[in-house]
Simulated scan of single mutants.
Amino acid sequence: MIEPDHPDLSIGQQCKLLAIARSSYYYEPKGETEQNLDLMRQIDEQFLETPFFGVRQMTWHLRNDGQMVNEKRIRRLMRLMGLMPIYQKPNTSSPAKGHKTYPYLLRGLRVERPNQVWCSDITYLPMRRGFLYLVAIMDWHTRKVLSWRISNTLEADFCVDALNEA
């Protein structure tokens, strides 16, 4: 947007018109230091061997190799490299102790016609900055989605709207 060889306007005047700092025009990114590039290479080699190492384990491993690093630096470099460790997620399918188990009311019921049984589910869609929540209502017989809604908050309004539309 800035023309360095403009006959009437200097670079400073052009920056002022665009409401940007003149220093941002001259800024050149420096990139990573040689030490950080070496650390990234070591992290990559270790991550190929042990893809379950997170930030803490990777920091511990590099410290054992004689590198003086902290977790914040390793976290930044692993995020920059796009490395996400593989780890066992919590098992949310098994009930916790003390939780009441409700009976399954559809056991033995034959679903033979449309609109006899509906089902619904809420899931979250991970986005770059937070989550979106999706609710879908489906007919069991035809397996068609009757309605769905997306919301950025987990309030009941969008679920009720989807149910009313279905």
Rank of each mutant, 00 (worst) to 15 (best):
I2D: 10
P4T: 05
D5W: 03
S10W: 10
I11A: 11
G12C: 12
G12D: 14
Q13A: 07
Q14H: 08
L17S: 04
L17A: 08
L18R: 15
R22K: 14
S24Y: 01
Y25F: 08
Y25R: 05
Y25I: 09
Y25Q: 00
Y26P: 00
Y26T: 01
Y27R: 01
E28H: 08
P29E: 07
K30G: 04
K30Q: 14
E32L: 12
E34R: 12
E34L: 12
Q35H: 12
Q35F: 13
N36P: 08
N36L: 04
N36V: 02
L37M: 03
L37C: 01
D38N: 08
L39P: 13
M40F: 12
Q42D: 15
Q42T: 12
Q42E: 15
I43H: 11
D44C: 06
F47S: 03
L48V: 00
T50R: 14
P51H: 08
G54Q: 04
R56S: 09
R56Q: 09
M58C: 02
W60A: 07
W60T: 06
L62S: 06
L62W: 04
R63N: 11
D65A: 14
M68C: 02
V69G: 02
V69Q: 04
E71H: 08
R73F: 01
L77Q: 08
M78A: 03
M81F: 07
G82M: 06
G82H: 09
L83I: 03
M84V: 05
Q88M: 08
K89A: 13
K89S: 11
N91K: 12
S93K: 15
S94G: 08
P95A: 02
G98L: 02
G98H: 02
H99Q: 09
L106A: 07
R107W: 01
R110P: 02
R110C: 12
V111W: 03
E112D: 15
E112A: 07
N115D: 15
N115I: 04
Q116A: 08
V117N: 02
V117I: 15
S120G: 15
D121R: 11
D121M: 11
D121K: 12
T123Y: 04
Y124M: 02
G130L: 02
F131D: 03
Y133V: 00
V135P: 12
A136Y: 00
I137S: 10
M138R: 14
H141C: 03
K144S: 14
V145F: 13
L146I: 00
L146R: 13
L154W: 04
L154R: 10
E155L: 08
A156P: 00
D157M: 06
D157T: 14
D157Y: 06
D157H: 11
F158I: 06
F158C: 05
V160Y: 13
E165Q: 14
